[in-house]
């Protein structure tokens, strides 16, 4: 241990730095013994690959899930992207550019995985732009101060990693492989967020207040990122059961949320940040932290499109895409001309 006033670089700060990641990323191929029957492969916890036979509903569910995940990465560039020009130091500016760039990369890895299922990225983007496919509601909250970049890295990337580590052993091979790549990169995101808050909490009074305010605003939305309750009574009629059976979901929303809370509370204490939940306390009996009730009405409202930034995020994305149309067309036109020129050269030779 390093004492209380530095971050111990060897201590895991997020789920990608724990054994869970290594366990998820390791995978033993037994296909030789099992053959290529979908149900048998799933039952034996084996990977399904793009050209394998698979039920239509499995394919559709995956396309929807991977696309939504990809959209979240791309839309997720915006809340922090708009701080690149305002980052308060050059070191922070460089880190932020690299981080937002990573999110673009994650989006591309995921669209690439979705495309192995027979959809085109353009189709998926159209569905995003038309509001037919969703992205994570967390990005419909505004980033009001610099400390929000810290809170997003610490809490939002932290929660995302918690969600994503189990997906490294998702039954669909290309998705699992994309997630392994993503998780490896994500842990830097969470660390830089923690470090932003750490620095603020050791700074001026105004900086401390800024950090506390950001944590106040992002804590509950981060908990909601795990999705609605899906254990006990709440599980009935949900997607969780089928997705679990297919190996495209490994833990219930409630399990992951609990793990996240258990991981974050000690980190908040270290930071000196008070999490905005009066019911938060260690439950000796359960061996977990108890926490308060999430305001699901608010969650559903944001999901339906009534969040502070829903319209803005889609509008931004659509504008960038539309403004780029002439560029993409030009590149296609040039490629087509080049092909013709090469063919002419060949036939002349």
């Amino acid at each position: 241990m390093y004492g209380n006033d530095v971050i111990d670089p060897n201590e895991p700060l997020n789920a990608a730095e724990t054994g869970a990641y290594d366990a998820a990323a390791a995978h033993e191929d037994q296909r030789e013994a099992i053959g290529s029957d979908f149900d048998a492969l799933i039952a034996a916890d084996q990977r399904i690959e793009p050209r394998d036979a698979m039920p239509d509903t499995y394919r559709e569910t995956l396309i929807r899930q991977i696309a939504q995940h990809a959209h979240s990465e791309i839309i997720g560039m915006q809340p922090e992207g708009n701080w690149i020009t305002r980052a308060p130091s050059l070191r922070r500016k460089a880190i932020l550019i690299a981080k937002v760039q990573d999110e673009a990369g994650h989006g591309l890895y995921l669209y690439s995985a979705a495309e192995t299922l027979g959809v085109d990225r353009q189709e998926l983007l159209d569905r995003l732009h038309d509001g037919k496919q969703k992205y994570s509601s967390i990005f419909n909250y505004p980033t009001l101060t610099w400390a929000d970049c810290g809170a997003i890295g610490w809490l939002v990337d932290g929660a995302a990693i918690m969600n994503q580590v189990p997906l490294c052993r998702c039954s669909y091979g290309p998705y699992a492989r994309a997630m392994i790549r993503v998780c490896k990169e994500e842990s830097f995101h969470q660390r830089q967020g923690f470090e932003i808050l750490w620095t603020l909490m050791r700074g001026t009074e105004a900086q401390q207040a800024m950090a506390q305010d950001a944590a106040d605003r992002w804590w509950w939305p981060a908990l909601a990122m795990f999705g609605p309750p899906d254990t006990g009574e709440a599980a009935k009629g949900g997607h969780t059961e089928q997705s679990m059976a297919w190996g495209i979901k490994r833990f219930s929303n409630d399990d992951l949320r609990q793990k996240f809370v258990d991981m974050m509370v000690p980190q908040a204490e270290k930071l000196g940040i008070v999490l905005p939940d009066p019911h938060l306390r260690w439950n000796e009996e359960r061996g977990h932290y108890d926490f308060g009730e999430i305001d699901w009405d608010e969650f559903w409202q944001v999901l339906r499109g009534d969040g502070p930034c829903n319209a803005e995020r889609i509008e931004h994305r659509r504008r960038a895409h539309d403004e780029g149309a002439w560029v993409r067309e030009a590149a296609n036109a040039y490629a087509a001309k080049q092909t013709i020129r090469e063919n002419e050269k060949e036939s002349a030779a």
Binding site: E115, E329, N332, A335
Partner: peptide, 16 residues
């Protein structure tokens, strides 16, 4: 400059 050949304005770039 020559005119864009046909098919040049298809909606998306090819996959690599």
């Amino acid at each position: 400059m020559t005119d864009a050949p046909e098919g040049a304005t298809e909606r998306s770039w090819p996959l690599w």
